[in-house]
Design a protein around this nucleic acid. Structure first.
Length: 603
RNA sequence: GCGCCUGUAGCUCAGCGGAUUAGAGCAUCUGACUACGGAUCAGAGGGUCGGGAGUUCGAAUCUCUCCAGGCGCGCCA
């Protein structure tokens, strides 16, 4: 409906100019244009769109809102181009102008969707030309080397992947960056521990399997805490590593490789592609970051540390906390790294990524940190004029008790365990159902369905929630077959495949489309809304908007399916309904695909 | 103490300037399988949108204030 929307908006603007020639006299308005305040209708019974401008113009023009609305509608009624797409407008309530798209026009739109693999969603590069194609950096997932991926990485990984998919689909060139924690003082103790536990690892060509890296990390940490001798050696090892000592670097590399393999297993399982560019990548740039900030007179030395003091918005007399860019021992910290990364991402290629938009998908707790980093980068002029930098925060993952999710023994939940459990539960559920229905399916089917349903449920449950709030994790709820869940949406897809199996030709042409039932028109309208939802997600970076749309689409489809026969209908209704089935299936497949969820034909 | 975020139906949450009844889902209750998978559909009950003030023709939505909860707070990331 995007193109219809903008057509209607254009006609409205023209009607406004013609009906209210003295618009320009309103203080604060240029005479050329005024916003007709066109939005989607707030309720289906009001039509497709509504224009709200009459109400806000009323006071300024000292006329009644209904009077103004009348004047606008009079002009619209004389515009033949407008009447081609819209029914005669209705004025409702205090002065809303309700607009309903003509049926023929909806049918034409629907036809245009057939054979269009973008389902009406505009492509950025095609639309704006190659020069406008923008490069977007999405920074997400970012686990720490030598630690395991756990629930804490779940949301960033899933949300980041989804946003990347949406931006890619819209034609942006997306750089998916895994900003892994692969540098820092913890490597001192890890390398020291490795040297003692498995010294042969450093001298063999092939890397050695270190087994459970988490256990390894824990052992090293324990020794670091307990043993002063070990502590001294560790600190020495950090210095060696930072100084470029070959053996230390080799140990570091070994640890990184080991972790990388473990991370990759999770990404493969979730079908997520991401490119590692860890903190260490920015080491060569750290010094120049501080130098440049110093040259630009942003740096103040305070208690031995080099700081950039933030400019405050509030009048509070207290000093805002500084962003520390160099510690008093001369070392750099994470703020320095983030600044180096930000500068690099906006710099033109080949010195940088040439990004026009940089997106950070991290938990809401880092909001202050990013505020500070962004402000410093802004003041240092590292963000180009057209550049956008956004922190995309999300809340914590909570357990049933409303507290941070932990295992029963109080430990952090490992991501692979969590995924295993989702798939196991999906399998148990499926087998119980097969048993109840007396169905027989082979093992391959059972495995495929339970894997797809299990992982889809985890992803969908996360994405369907507004990411800003904390998120209460519940296997029972996410795997439930009813409600706003992945299985419900997947079931809608399965039903359509069922129609195809029973002889419905989903490749049927869109000639002679004809609809007669309310449920058909509801479905037509819902299908046509897809394009504006995707544009909304691009702008707001809220995947739950897409989930909500897909859930509503499934609901509307299920109502249709329940009330309107497809295969037994007479022509031309049979074909028309098959077209609706086909477009529903394609929209669900594409939409779920953008969430990172594959669909099924049977389940 | 300061900063950020969140308080909407019994529960989990949408909505974040607009239209008599503030929406879903779960749970509860009542109906519907001789149509394509009932893993569905139709319906009912359930809310002074944390409290108070303000802006507006109009506020769950914007502003201020108070209350409650979460998270963070100079050399960890």
């Amino acid at each position: 409906m995007l193109s219809l929307f903008s057509s209607v908006e254009t006609y409205l603007c023209k009607a406004l100019e013609r009906s209210l020639p003295d618009l320009g006299l309103i203080p604060g308005n240029s005479c050329l244009s005024i916003d007709p305040q066109l939005v989607s209708a707030s309720k289906p019974e009001f039509g497709d769109f509504q224009a709200n401008c009459a109400l806000s113009l009323a006071k300024k023009m000292k006329r009644s809102p209904r009077d103004i609305a009348n004047a606008i509608v009079e002009q619209l009624e004389e515009d033949d181009d407008f009447l081609e797409i819209c029914e005669i407008p209705k004025i409702a309530g205090p002065g809303f102008i309700n607009l309903t798209i003509r049926n023929e026009c909806l049918i034409k739109e629907l036809k245009d969707r057939l054979g269009d693999d973008r389902l009406g969603v505009p492509h950025n590069v095609v639309n704006k030309g190659k020069d406008q194609a923008s490069s977007v950096v999405v920074d997400f997932s970012s686990p720490n080397i030598a630690k395991e991926m756990h629930v804490g990485h779940l949301r960033s990984t899933i949300i980041g992947d989804c946003l990347s998919r949406v931006l890619e689909f819209l034609g942006h060139s997306v750089v998916r960056v895994n900003h892994v924690g692969d540098w820092g003082t913890q490597f001192g103790m890890l390398i020291t521990h490795l040297n003692e536990v498995s010294p042969q690892a450093l001298h063999k060509a092939d890397s050695v399997d270190l087994g459970d890296l988490v256990a390894f990390y824990r052992e090293a940490k324990k020794r670091f805490d307990d043993d002063e001798h070990f502590r001294t050696k560790s600190r020495h090892e950090v210095v060696k590593l930072q100084g470029g000592d070959l053996l230390a670097l080799k140990a570091w590399q070994l640890l990184c490789d080991q972790s990388r393999r473990e991370f990759q297993k999770i990404y493969d399982r979730l079908n997520i592609s991401i490119h590692e560019r860890g903190e260490s990548f920015y080491n060569p740039y750290l010094k120049s970051v501080v130098d440049e900030l110093t040259t630009k007179h942003l740096v103040v030395t305070d208690q031995g540390a080099k700081c950039v003091f933030l400019q405050e918005k509030s009048q509070d007399s207290r000093k805002a906390p500084p962003v520390i860019v160099q510690k008093k021992d001369g070392g750099f910290n994470y703020a320095t790294t983030d600044l180096a990364a930000l500068r690099y991402r906006f710099k033109q290629t080949p010195e940088g990524d040439g990004a026009t938009r940089v997106i950070y998908v991290t938990d809401a707790g880092q909001a202050n940190h990013f505020d500070g980093v962004f402000q410093v980068a802004q003041r240092a002029n590292w963000i180009p004029e057209q550049g956008r930098v956004q922190h995309v925060p999300f809340g914590l993952v909570l357990g049933d008790d409303g507290k941070k999710l932990k295992t029963r023994s109080g430990e952090t939940v490992r991501l692979c365990d969590l995924l295993d459990e989702a798939v196991d539960r999906a399998k148990i559920d499926l087998c119980r159902r097969l048993n109840e229905e007396g169905r027989e399916e082979d093992q391959a089917f059972i495995n495929k369905v339970s894997t797809t349903v299990g992982l889809a449920s985890v992803k969908y449950a996360d994405l369907s929630q507004n990411r800003i709030t904390n998120y209460q994790f519940s296997f029972d709820r996410m795997l439930s077959l009813q409600g706003n869940t992945a299985p419900y949406l997947l079931y809608a897809c399965v039903r359509i495949s069922g129609i195809a199996r029973k002889g419905g030709d989903l490749e049927t042409t869109g000639d002679n489309l004809s609809f007669c039932e309310r449920y058909e028109w509801d479905l037509v309208r819902q299908i046509l809304k897809f394009d504006e939802i995707i544009i909304q997600v691009e702008e707001e970076l809220l995947p739950n908007r897409l989930c909500n749309y897909l859930f509503e689409l499934s609901q509307v489809f299920n109502r249709f399916y329940d009330q309107v026969p497809v295969l037994k209908a007479e022509q031309p209704f049979r074909n028309s309904r098959l077209v609706l089935c086909r477009l529903t299936a394609e929209t669900l497949r594409l939409g779920l695909g953008l969430l990172g969820i594959p669909t099924l034909d049977r389940m």
